[in-house]
Amino acid sequence: MPRYEYRCRTCDESFELSRPMAESGAPADCPAGHSDTVKLLSAVAVGGTSSAPAPSGGGCCGGGGCC
Rank of each mutant, 00 (worst) to 15 (best):
P2E: 01
H34Q: 10
C8E: 05
S35H: 01
A32H: 14
S42G: 06
T37G: 02
S14N: 11
P27V: 13
F15M: 13
P27S: 13
A32S: 14
R9Q: 10
Y6W: 14
F15G: 03
R7F: 00
S18H: 09
A32Q: 15
C8V: 01
R19L: 13
G25A: 12
S14G: 04
S35V: 00
C8T: 04
C8Q: 07
M21E: 14
C11L: 08
H34Y: 03
A32V: 07
P27A: 13
A32D: 15
L40I: 05
L41D: 03
P27I: 12
R9T: 02
D12C: 04
E16W: 11
Y4P: 10
L40P: 05
D36R: 12
T10E: 06
E16G: 08
C30S: 09
L40T: 05
L17M: 05
M21R: 15
R19E: 01
C11E: 03
S18A: 15
R3H: 08
R9V: 02
D36P: 02
L40A: 09
T37F: 04
R9Y: 05
L17I: 14
G25K: 06
D36Y: 03
K39D: 00
E13K: 14
A32E: 13
C30E: 08
E5R: 05
Y4T: 13
A28T: 15
L40M: 12
R7D: 00
S35T: 02
S18I: 12
A32Y: 12
S42Q: 15
A26S: 14
C8S: 03
T37E: 08
M21C: 03
C11F: 05
T37I: 13
Y4L: 09
L40C: 13
E16R: 12
C11K: 06
R9G: 06
P2Y: 06
R3D: 01
S35R: 06
A26M: 11
